Amino acid sequence: MDFLTLAKERCSIRSYEDKPIEPEKLQAVLEAGRLAPTGVNLQEQRLLVVQSPEGIAKIAEAVVKPDAYTAKAFIIVCAEKDAAWTRKFDGHNIYEIDASIVTTYMMLAATEQGLGSLWVCRFQPDVLREAFHIPEKYIPVNILCLGYAKPDAVKPIDRYDTDRKPLEETVWYESFDA
Rank of each mutant, 00 (worst) to 15 (best):
K25A: 12
A149M: 12
E44L: 11
R46M: 04
C78D: 10
R14K: 13
S52K: 05
K150Y: 00
E96Y: 02
M106P: 01
L35W: 07
Y160G: 11
A73Y: 03
Y95D: 04
L146Y: 03
D152Q: 15
T162Y: 05
S117T: 07
P151K: 13
E17D: 03
N93D: 09
W119P: 00
V141E: 11
T104R: 12
V77Q: 14
L128G: 12
P151W: 09
M107Y: 04
P151Y: 08
L144S: 07
A28D: 08
K81R: 14
V120G: 01
T103I: 05
T103D: 04
I101R: 11
V40W: 10
P23W: 03
L167W: 07
A83E: 12
V77F: 06
Q51H: 06
L6D: 01
K137F: 10
E9W: 08
T104C: 14
E174G: 04
T5I: 08
A178S: 14
R34N: 14
I75W: 01
L4G: 06
I76R: 02
G91A: 06
T86W: 00
L48T: 08
I94A: 04
V29K: 00
A149G: 11
L42S: 14
C145H: 00
L144G: 00
P135R: 15
V63I: 15
E96D: 10
L115T: 04
P23I: 00
A60D: 02
R14D: 00
P125S: 09
A57P: 06
K88M: 03
D67S: 08
S12D: 01
W85Q: 06
Y148W: 11
E96K: 06
I13D: 01
M1L: 09
A36F: 06
Q113L: 01
M1S: 12
E9Q: 15
S52M: 09
D82W: 05
D126C: 13
E168I: 00
I94N: 14
C145L: 02
E22T: 13
I101A: 07
R46E: 15
F132T: 10
A79P: 13
P20V: 01
Y160W: 14
Q27S: 13
A83Y: 10
R164P: 00
I134R: 02
E31L: 13
D2R: 01
Y95H: 11
L146H: 02
K65D: 06
F89K: 13
S52E: 08
R129D: 07
R122F: 15
K150H: 03
K165W: 07
R46I: 10
A110F: 11
E169S: 07
E54I: 11
D18I: 01
R10G: 04
E169H: 09
I97V: 12
F3P: 00
A153Q: 08
V29Q: 06
R129S: 15
Q113V: 12
L48V: 15
L118V: 03
V64E: 10
K155E: 03
E112D: 05
A79S: 14
P156T: 02
M106C: 10
D98W: 05
V50Q: 08
A32Q: 13
F123H: 09
